[in-house]
């Protein structure tokens, strides 16, 4: 177990270096010059050359990359071309919002997905099963920017139960809860659907497993069978799906943050790619990849803990 974690952490370092290289090169190959964006259409050629020099873009690309790597090794992600602020600081102010949104969406997804999956497994082929399956499939099929606009229209503009957008307070407070509800539903439906499917199929498998039959045969009460024997085992694969989905959620925040005016990392990435803010994009992608890998590592560890059958050599 410990060796597994160490091995994965070493891999992580190479993975992150690989990512810096890819993103760095991608941003430099991409057409579009950060200086002409900063200068705007009014800037003259000499204005642009001066901005190039200020940003260090007139150095050879390899030197720029090595400088960047060197900075990272010293814990310095560089400065944003646009705002001149430190990249770490820019990301740090936005990260809580994105994490709040991702966690809240995950909670929504679990609250909807797990019970829906279990109920439809227990009542297999009933109308309940049929409708919950349909519902979860529809959940994956809705474009989430469309759903977001619809939710704003109904619940924020017409009924005025919830604010239209913005996220200023943590989601566990009442105000924050109201602010995050619509974005979390918008983002969570897709994952809810996947969790529901996974819970349903893994529950079905467990119900038919030998040890459950044995338990039943031994005369254990039905609800005990379901809650104690089935559920715990059925949730193991669900945990994996949750972990994998968390990474997907981080990506999904890009559009949700845009629609709901949430100041998060996703929106920062959209703006930074559009304005060719190289250090910002590199820093952001690095961070998102880091979180993704760590979450999956944690999921694997949890997985190993709840399922003694799995071992890592």
């Amino acid at each position: 177990m410990v060796t597994m974690i160490i091995k994965r952490l070493i891999q992580l370092i190479f993975l992150l270096i690989g990512i810096t290289f890819i993103v760095f090169m991608a941003m430099h190959i991409a057409p579009g010059d950060p200086a002409s964006i900063i200068g705007g259409p009014t800037a003259t050629q000499s204005d642009i050359l001066a901005i190039h020099h200020r940003l260090g873009l007139d150095k050879p690309i390899i030197i720029q990359y090595l400088d960047y790597l060197n900075g990272i090794l010293h814990g310095d992600l560089g400065f944003s071309f646009q705002t001149n602020r430190s990249v770490a600081q820019e990301i740090w102010t936005r990260l809580p919002n994105t994490i709040d949104l991702a966690i809240a969406s995950m909670i929504v997804a679990i609250i909807i997905g797990v019970p829906a999956g279990i109920i439809s497994a227990l009542k297999q082929n009933s109308w309940l099963d049929f409708s919950s399956t349909t519902l979860s499939l529809a959940g994956i099929s809705i474009p989430n920017f469309w759903l977001g606009a619809l939710l704003i229209l109904v619940f924020a503009v017409n009924l005025q139960w919830l604010p239209v957008g913005g996220l200023d307070t943590p989601f566990w407070t009442f105000k924050g809860f109201k602010e995050i509800l619509l974005p979390a539903i918008t983002l969570g439906t897709g994952s809810a659907a996947m969790i529901a499917r996974m819970s349903r199929s893994s529950m079905l498998e467990i119900i038919r497993a030998d040890f459950v039959r044995t338990a039943r045969a031994k005369g254990v009460k039905e609800h005990m069978v379901i809650w104690v024997h089935c559920l715990r085992n059925a949730l193991i694969p669900v945990v994996t799906v949750i972990g994998l989905n968390f990474g997907g959620l981080l990506g999904g925040t890009i559009i949700t943050e845009q629609v709901f005016a949430i100041n998060g990392v996703g929106r920062l990435m959209v703006e930074s790619i559009a304005s060719r803010d190289f250090p910002m994009v590199q820093g952001g992608v690095l961070l998102i990849a880091f979180i993704f890998v760590i979450v999956n590592l944690v999921v694997d560890i949890v997985y190993a803990l709840i399922d003694p059958r799995i071992s890592y050599q």
Binding site: A149, P163, V164, G165, G166
Partner: peptide
């Protein structure tokens, strides 16, 4: 000065008083 990237959302916020 508040950033609201989507104009639709901004107008809805004007409508609801945010």
């Amino acid at each position: 000065f508040k950033v609201v990237p989507d104009v639709n959302t901004a107008i809805s916020m004007l409508q609801t008083g945010q």
